[in-house]
Every structure is written in structure tokens, then in C-alpha cells.
């Protein structure tokens, strides 16, 4: 049995439904046949739909899956909401670079080793009824 695995991620594209949305078809028709896009490029008037699918292969179970194929189907709409142009971006269009390692600081209590030991069984769950038999949302019964 081969140990390598192929992981298909993102949008599942099949060629024949693509033919259903030639240039000029309406936005609703695209939504109907291709479904909701992975992400869109416009805030409200949906200028571009992006259908993004990735294929990864993992030679052995513990390895990180390696990106072997990436397809971005971009459907550009005109201002009247008709398909103006369809473009395809592949893995070659993508760029590889190392990401910025800095992160914006955030707050909140963090666990220290002693804190974890002393904290014991973690947070007591659930509303504790107080002497009036009220649960914490305040009604008496």
C-alpha cells in the first residue's frame, strides 16, 4: 500500500459546469452553477468571484503536505453584473516568499506552569445558584 496521500482542498471544480457560465451570463447564473465563491473581490457590488482550489501531496504521513497544484478561477463582472471575463491563475502565478514574523501584541491571561498546576481542574463550569436559588441571569426561580 503506498504511503503517499493526495489532499484535494478548496473549491471542487468540474469542467463541464464551467461551460455553463460563458462570458455574458448573469451573476445569479454563476452562483447557481458554480456555487458560492471561495472569496470575492468586491465589498458589495461583487466585482470579481474567485474559486480557489489547491492540491497537496504528502509522501509520508508525518511530512507537511506539499502544494503541488493551485488553480484560481477568477470571474470578472461588468458594472451591470454580467460576466465580463474569466481568468485562470495557476501555481506559477503564485509567488513564494517568507512571511513577516512580527505579530501585533494582544492581552489576556496566559497560563504559567505554576498557574496550570495550581489552577487544578480548570474553570468551574456552569452558573452557580446563589442563596436565592437564582441562576446568574437574575430571575429568582
Amino acid at each position: 500500500c503506498s504511503t503517499s496521500e493526495v489532499l484535494k482542498q478548496g473549491y471542487v471544480l468540474d469542467e463541464d459546469t464551467l461551460a455553463l457560465v460563458p462570458v455574458g451570463s448573469s451573476r445569479e447564473q454563476v452562483l447557481l452553477s458554480l456555487g458560492t465563491p471561495s472569496t470575492t473581490a468586491t465589498f458589495d457590488n461583487d466585482e470579481v468571484f474567485y474559486y480557489i482550489s489547491q492540491t497537496r501531496s504528502r509522501p509520508v504521513a508525518f511530512m507537511k503536505p506539499r502544494l503541488v497544484d493551485q488553480r484560481v478561477l477568477a470571474v470578472y463582472f461588468s458594472s451591470e453584473g454580467m460576466v465580463r471575463q474569466i481568468a485562470n491563475y495557476t501555481l506559477q502565478d503564485g509567488r513564494v516568499f517568507d512571511l513577516i514574523s512580527r505579530t501585533t501584541p494582544t492581552g489576556g491571561r496566559d497560563l504559567t506552569f505554576l498557574g496550570q498546576l495550581l489552577a487544578g481542574p480548570g474553570e468551574g463550569g456552569g452558573a452557580v445558584p446563589n442563596p436565592f436559588g437564582q441562576t446568574s441571569d437574575g430571575n429568582p426561580y
Binding site: 480557489i52 491563475y89 502565478d93 503564485g94 509567488r95
Partner: peptide, 9 residues
């Protein structure tokens, strides 16, 4: 910027 650039968009 990073994500879109990596995608080629």
C-alpha cells in the same frame, strides 16, 4: 497583501 500576492492576485 501577502496572501493575495502569494496566490498571484
Amino acid at each position: 497583501v501577502e496572501a493575495n500576492y502569494a496566490l498571484g492576485l
